[in-house]
Design a protein around this nucleic acid. Structure first.
Lengths: 104, 104
DNA sequence: TTCATGGTTCGAATATAGTTGAACCATCGA
DNA sequence: TCGATGGTTCAACTATATTCGAACCATGAA
């Protein structure tokens, strides 16, 4: 019984460095990644970043991060649980996330 | 006596993480960075990568990398000497370049 | 079951980035 | 000093990304 509301996520082996770098190269997306570094958050809470942002735009940001393999986006009741795929990124690109998160 | 053929380079303090990540997020640009990691190279030699690429396109790639502060592009006689700004990037974003270059 | 909620998807518009020929510029060799 | 060489800049075009309203879809609460 597969949940049809599950979104596609690339497998660890399919992560592409340039795609990950691109996903991180936008200030809004990088801010989300920084937020998630502290632990998984529900989308509704996490994006206190800019409450004025239309939800379709928010959803798009998450899509870019998800398709790059940077975050996981899972259904959780009526909400979405967002989490950083730290293990996967660390496994494929050791030190990358750490240095990005440490920067300034 | 300032050389008018000197191109503008951002200072170390002006490097922006997202801009650096963006510059590295393109396969062709990343390939150039990898080449330069071995040491400075003249543009004519370095870009054996794709000899068919028009020079205006090559020049544009270099511009994006230069303006992000990733590479230095200096006049050297009739040619251009390209070099990775490893010291500056390391100083501002420790470990970043290393992890990017180490990836696969 | 019905409604409100939180989020995705679609489609169209806008903005940004990449590609390229042509014009130009400085340098070195003849 | 003239021409060839290596490269930048400009302008126009194409392609890709972003933005956002509207339609839609599950879920949980009433």
């Amino acid at each position: 019984m597969k949940d049809p509301s599950e979104l596609p996520h690339p497998s660890r082996a399919d992560l592409k460095l340039t795609q990950v770098l691109f996903a991180l190269s936008d200030p809004a997306r990088l801010a989300i990644v920084r937020h998630l570094a502290a632990g998984p958050q529900e989308m509704a809470n996490c994006c206190a970043i800019d409450p004025n942002m239309p939800k379709s735009t928010k959803s798009h940001l998450m899509k870019v991060l998800r398709e790059a393999g940077v975050i996981r986006n899972e259904a959780k009741g009526r909400n979405r649980l967002l989490s950083l795929r730290q293990d996967d990124i660390d496994a494929r690109f050791p030190g990358l996330l750490q240095s990005v998160l440490a920067a300034e």
